[in-house]
């Protein structure tokens, strides 16, 4: 049982990360937002758990990044993106 649990944990760790670590061209699913002063603002823009988003490009120096979300493009600084927890999609 411990074996299975640790395997699941590894898979979870592999599949989940913050949006700041995602490279351009990758689609991910929002899984949650860390608490901070801009949590509400991020939610209002549509970063809701379950939403599929794609990092479409980043500015020079890899910061800020541009994210496609429900057809609109939102730019976030890496600091802000690191508040958004995402899960990788299996087929992307």
């Amino acid at each position: 049982m411990w074996y299975e649990l640790s395997f699941l944990l590894l898979v979870y760790l592999y599949m989940s990360s913050s949006l700041a670590e995602i490279h351009p061209g990758k689609k991910v699913i929002v899984s949650g937002i860390d608490n901070s002063h801009i949590t509400t603002k991020l939610l209002e823009l549509g970063f809701i758990a379950g939403t599929v988003i794609e990092v479409i490009f980043s500015a020079p120096f890899r910061d800020p990044i541009a994210i496609e979300l429900n057809g609109s493009v939102i730019s976030l600084r890496l600091d802000e993106a690191s508040l958004i927890q995402v899960e990788k999609m299996v087929n992307s």
Binding site: H37, K41, L45, I74, S75, L76
Partner: peptide
């Protein structure tokens, strides 16, 4: 107090 933020929409 707070940290600056960008949160900008890039329109088509």
């Amino acid at each position: 107090k707070g940290k600056g933020f960008l949160l900008l929409e890039l329109p088509g």
